[in-house]
Every structure is written in structure tokens, then in C-alpha cells.
Simulated scan of single mutants.
Amino acid sequence: MSPANSSSLRPASFLLVGIPGLEAAQHWVAIPLCAMYIVALLGNCVILFIIRTDSSLHEPMYLFLATLAVTDLVLCTSTVPKMLSIFWLGSREIEFHACFAQMFFVHSSSLVETGILVAMAFDRYVAICNPLRHATILKFATVAKIASLVLVRGLAVIAPFPLLLRRLPFCKVNVIPHSYCEHMAVLKLACADTTLNTSYGAVVTMLVVGLDGMSIVLSYVMILRAVFSLPSGQARLKSLSTCTSHVCVILIFYVPGLFSFLAHRFSQNVPQSVHILLANLYLLLPPMLNPIVYGVKTKQIRTRVSRVFHVRAPERHKTVAAERVFLENNSQGPQGLVLEQ
């Protein structure tokens, strides 16, 4: 089909259904989704503020965590506001190019996040297997280069998705049975051969996401080998404890994604409403839980958060401690007073 004919069959906008089958109740579903979004915004902004203002946290792990927080903010903010407007205001229409832009930000953010998780796994590997060379290997400039490479890779790999879709005619209905412009949901509306699009999507899933997952698994196999070779059980536990937060973040990201992927592949056995809900949770669970996990599991961040929100509490404790010492010294009698002099 010629470009002119293709552009003439391009709709001015699409209509997002929301959650098919739950249209009457989706305004109630929006309440927990909105709460999760608020928690994600607050949590990631707090993480960024703490890492930015505390120079002791300007280390590779925390710099990667800051990059992860920015990615999570982009991931959920590119979809949730529009999603809530659909659920609460019935604002289903999304402009053609805005739909493609949303698709690009959603999928590129997901791919950037997998790359950051790989970089964080490499950081844990170096910290445990080569602790003496950790500062030498992962300098600030090296961390910046890794983060830039992950970002460029995510943008470059996902850019063909909207470009390949844009060349297709959309002569079917312009209703997307989804809460946001997901690639496969939009692709099903095209009335042309989509083999190239589906093949490229399969290659990206298998090569990029598959390689990232294998890299993370390989890193932790080597980490476990190094940890269990330590002579002391306490040293093993201490080494493993430094990885718990990262492992939790990996599971939070990959498990919902795996369920969403399986639901899509076996959609004939899964209600469409369940599939869409899983896809929505996939966008919200990691941004919401990642800062909570690192805030609870990482002592430095936990301490810094307590200082931010309880500024006067330490000062009060110091005052009470000083008064207690003064009373104890004065209660020692004349000898104590002589010593004080």
C-alpha cells in the first residue's frame, strides 16, 4: 500500500477502553491504582532527594538506584494520569501521535529498567567478588557511562516499534481494548501484514530481555560461589544481606512481567480483564515497591530517611542523654565534683 493511502487510513485518534469487562466498576479499581501511583511518586522522589543531598551515598549502588528511580517515575507517569482520566472522567480519546509517544516511553522505560538491574547486579558482583578493586573498577565516570549506555540502548531498541507501526494502515476500528497504548494492542488494529512488527518484537524479547535475565542469573551464580567459599558463616550472611534489596527489586520487576507475558500468550484461557489488570500492575508495582524495599533493606537510606522526617528527634535524644550524664556525674558526691574541677 502506498504511503499516501496508508496516511489516509490513519485515524486522528484512538479510544482506550480501560479495563474491558469492568467498565462499570473501573472507577473503583482506579482508587488503589491512584494510591499506588502517589506512593510511587513520593517514594522515588524521596530516594532521589536523599541520594542527591547526602554525599556519602554518591556510590555506584546508590547512583544506579537514582537512575532506577528516574526510570520508574517515567514508566508510571507516562501512563497512570491518562489511565485515571479514563477511569474517573471517561476521557478515553488519545491523539494518534500521543498514543505512539506513550507506547515509546512505556516500552523504552521497561527496557532501560532491565539494563539498570543488570548494572546493579554487576555492581554487587564486583563488591563481593573483588571488594578491594570496587572503587577502582566502578568510578563515577564509569557508572555514568554505564547508565548512559543503558539509556541509549533502551531508546534505540524501542524506537523502531512506533516507526514500524506508523507505516501501517489502520482501517479497522480505532478502539484499543486496553488502559494504555501497549504495542500489541495497537498492532492488532492494523489491516496489513504485521509479520515484521511481530518478528522484531520477538527478537527484542528473546535477545535483549533474555540476555539481561541471563546476565543477572550469571552474576548471582558467581556471587553465590564467592559467598559460600567464605570460611565464616557470619561473613556469608553479611555478604548475602547486601544483595537482598537488589534481589527483591529483580523479583518485583520480572515476576509481574512474566505473568503479564504468559497471560498475553495464553489469552484464550485468561479473561481479558485479568490480562489488563496484570499489565497495569506491571507498570505500578515496581515503581511503588522499589523505594520501599531499598528504604527498608538498606541501612544508609533508612537512617537518612529517619533524619529527614524526624529532624528534632535526634536533638531531643542528645539533650536527654546529656542531662543524664550530668546527673550521673553530680550524683557521685564530692569526689565526682573534684574530678570535674
Rank of each mutant, 00 (worst) to 15 (best):
A144I: 11
L165H: 00
L165W: 03
A185I: 01
C191I: 05
A147P: 05
K188P: 08
L149M: 15
H178S: 09
D193Y: 02
M184T: 13
I128M: 01
K139N: 03
L189F: 01
A147K: 09
L164P: 02
L187E: 10
A192G: 08
P131W: 00
V143L: 02
V186M: 03
V186A: 06
T142F: 11
D193M: 03
V173L: 14
A135N: 11
P169Q: 10
R167A: 12
L138K: 05
N174M: 11
L151T: 10
V143N: 02
V150L: 12
M184V: 14
T142P: 10
E182D: 08
F170M: 07
L189P: 00
L164H: 02
P177N: 09
C191L: 06
R133I: 08
C129D: 09
S148P: 04
A147R: 06
V175R: 12
I128H: 00
L168E: 05
C191Y: 05
E182Q: 07
V143R: 06
P177M: 01
L138V: 03
R133H: 11
H134Q: 13
C129R: 12
R133N: 09
R166S: 13
C171Y: 13
T142A: 13
T142V: 11
T142E: 07
K145E: 06
I128Y: 03
I128G: 02
I158L: 04
V150M: 12
P177T: 10
A192T: 12
E182R: 02
A144N: 15
S148W: 06
R133F: 08
R166N: 15
T142G: 09
A192E: 10
G154I: 00
V173S: 14
R153I: 04
A156Y: 10
V143G: 00
L149R: 07
K145Y: 10
L132C: 14
I176Q: 01
I137M: 05
L189W: 01
L189S: 00
A185P: 00
C171P: 10
I137T: 04
A141C: 12
L163Y: 06
C181E: 03
A156G: 10
A185L: 08
L165T: 02
L151K: 06
I158C: 02
G154R: 01
V150Y: 08
A156N: 08
A147H: 10
T136D: 15
L138M: 07
I176W: 01
A141D: 14
P160C: 06
P131V: 04
K172M: 07
G154F: 00
G154M: 00
I158H: 01
A159R: 11
G154Y: 03
H183K: 04
E182A: 09
V173M: 10
N174I: 14
A135Y: 06
P177W: 09
Y180F: 14
P169L: 05
F140G: 13
Y180R: 03
K188N: 05
V150S: 10
K172Q: 14
D193N: 07
N130A: 15
L151R: 05
A185F: 09
C181V: 00
L187R: 02
P160S: 01
G154W: 00
C129A: 15
V186W: 01
T142R: 12
G154N: 05
A147N: 11
P131G: 06
K172H: 09
A141H: 14
Y180V: 03
C129H: 04
N174F: 05
K145D: 01
F161P: 00
V143K: 01
S179H: 06
I158G: 00
